[in-house]
Amino acid sequence: MEKRSVTTFAGKPVTLLGHEVKVGDKAPAFTCVKQDLTPFSLADVEGKVKLVSVVPSVDTGVCELQTVRFNQEAGKLADTAVITISCDLPFAQGRFCAAKGIDNAVVVSDYNGHHFGLAYGFLIEELMLLNRGIVVIDKDDVVRYVEYVAENTEHPDYDKALEAARALL
């Protein structure tokens, strides 16, 4: 299994597990869990641009802001699936979405098997949480933008990710 030391969490170096995806790669298949405990995969949003917002936990300030921001943007992006992925349990995600009015983005959990985290190289070995970042995938399931943040307490580059997604419409 690939391991990379390219990021920090609260200033401390952490190790990312899994294959680092790069622009031009075919988007790896993965399965996560929706809030109703049914599976979610890329096939569920086939033929759409996909903006995948990756957060360690929706129960933290930066993750909350990132999830709310992309939910708002999702309402403005035609033919685009905005997907937020964390390792929070689906029940906690459901409470969060209800409290914050998350209704445009799909919020799914990678807690059960870490399929996304390992397939895309976002799983933090020391914490078994996902590294903050963004992946934009085109309608043909090719990766067109990737950001693994250098420090997990910092925001990703929202503008670059949104620009990449809009360029695919």
Rank of each mutant, 00 (worst) to 15 (best):
S86Y: 07
G75M: 15
T15Y: 02
Q72W: 04
L162V: 06
Y111E: 08
L17G: 02
Y111A: 15
V58S: 01
V82S: 03
L118W: 03
T38R: 07
A98F: 09
T31I: 13
K22Q: 14
R166F: 07
V82W: 05
C32Y: 00
I102R: 06
F70I: 13
L118Y: 02
G61M: 13
V6E: 04
V6Y: 06
G101V: 13
F91K: 08
N104D: 12
D141T: 13
F116E: 06
C87Q: 04
Y120I: 04
L16F: 07
V82E: 03
V136P: 03
T60E: 10
G101F: 11
F9M: 12
A92K: 10
L51Q: 04
F122V: 01
V82P: 06
R144T: 11
A161R: 02
L17W: 04
A150V: 14
V108G: 07
F9P: 08
E73Y: 04
R69I: 08
E20N: 04
V149R: 04
E151G: 01
I85M: 11
A98K: 14
D59F: 08
A10E: 15
V49M: 05
L16D: 06
G113T: 11
M1G: 15
V23K: 11
A78N: 12
Q66M: 14
A161P: 05
Q93K: 07
G121K: 00
E163S: 12
P156A: 13
E126T: 08
Q72E: 15
V68Y: 07
K76F: 09
F91A: 07
A161M: 05
S86D: 06
I134M: 10
V55D: 00
A27H: 06
Q93L: 15
P28G: 11
D103N: 14
V6K: 07
V106S: 09
R166N: 09
G75Q: 10
L130H: 03
G133W: 00
V68C: 11
